[in-house]
Computed example of a mutant assay.
Amino acid sequence: MVRIVRFTAAAVLAAAAIVPSAPARAAGFDGPWTVLIITEAGSCDQGYSFPVQISGGRVTSAGSANITGTVGRGGAVTVRVSQGGSSASGNGRLGATSGFGRWSGKGSAGTCSGRWQATRS
């Protein structure tokens, strides 16, 4: 279940709804971020850290997982991550230098969930 933990962290990025036109105005969050995933329920790894990139309000991975997500003007984040047969989603909020949120996912080890925290790299 290591894969789910890696994904959802991307769930970097990342509680509020995203306004569809907001990503273009979210440039204040652009740049590299490091996300720490903490598993609170399920049999996934207890913690994992990895890099993500935000550009023009869009969240992408610096690694091998397929990550799609957005950051709104106010810092609201929604992310979906998949790799192999596993997938996860997360949401939360970013500030100028850090962020936090919740994630949940499903894969070969079952269902897992927890929280994430991000810091600007």
Rank of each mutant, 00 (worst) to 15 (best):
I18P: 01
T68L: 13
G74H: 08
A65C: 08
V59G: 08
P51S: 09
V12Q: 10
I37D: 09
K106F: 05
T39V: 12
Q83T: 04
R58K: 15
V59P: 12
I38D: 09
A62Y: 01
L13I: 06
A9H: 04
I38L: 13
V71D: 01
S89Q: 10
M1D: 12
G63V: 02
G42P: 00
A26F: 05
S43K: 15
V2G: 13
R80A: 15
S89L: 01
S82E: 11
L13C: 12
V71I: 15
T70I: 06
R80H: 09
S87A: 09
T34A: 12
N66C: 01
A26H: 03
T68C: 03
S49R: 11
S64Q: 07
T97W: 00
D45K: 15
A96R: 07
V77Q: 03
S82Q: 13
P51N: 12
N91I: 01
A17W: 03
P23Y: 14
V12I: 12
T78L: 14
A27P: 04
A16D: 06
I67C: 00
N66V: 03
D45P: 13
A15W: 10
R3W: 14
G99R: 06
F50K: 13
A16T: 04
A17Y: 06
N66W: 03
G74A: 12
A41S: 15
F7H: 07
G105V: 01
E40Q: 14
P51G: 13
N66D: 02
M1V: 15
D30N: 14
P51I: 02
G90H: 03
V52N: 05
I4F: 04
E40K: 12
G107H: 00
A41Y: 11
A27C: 10
I18D: 11
A26S: 09
V52Y: 05
V19E: 13
V77S: 09
A27L: 10
I54C: 01
I4K: 10
A9C: 03
A17L: 05
G85T: 03
A62K: 13
G42M: 10
S104G: 08
T68F: 02
S108N: 04
P23T: 14
A24P: 07
Y48C: 01
G107D: 00
A16K: 11
A22Y: 03
V35S: 14
I67V: 08
A22R: 11
R80Y: 02
T39P: 00
G69A: 01
G28E: 09
T97M: 06
G90E: 00
L13Q: 07
R25Q: 15
L36Y: 02
A96E: 03
G57A: 10
A16H: 05
S98F: 04
D45M: 13
R3N: 10
F29V: 07
D30L: 11
T60N: 07
G107E: 01
W33P: 02
R80F: 06
S98V: 02
R58S: 12
M1H: 14
I67G: 00
G92S: 04
A62N: 07
V2E: 13
A27K: 15
T39F: 03
A10N: 07
Q53L: 11
V35H: 06
T68E: 10
A24M: 11
S82G: 07
S98K: 02
F29L: 05
F7M: 09
L94F: 00
Q83Y: 08
A41F: 08
A27G: 14
D30K: 09
G63L: 15
A15F: 14
G92V: 04
A11E: 08
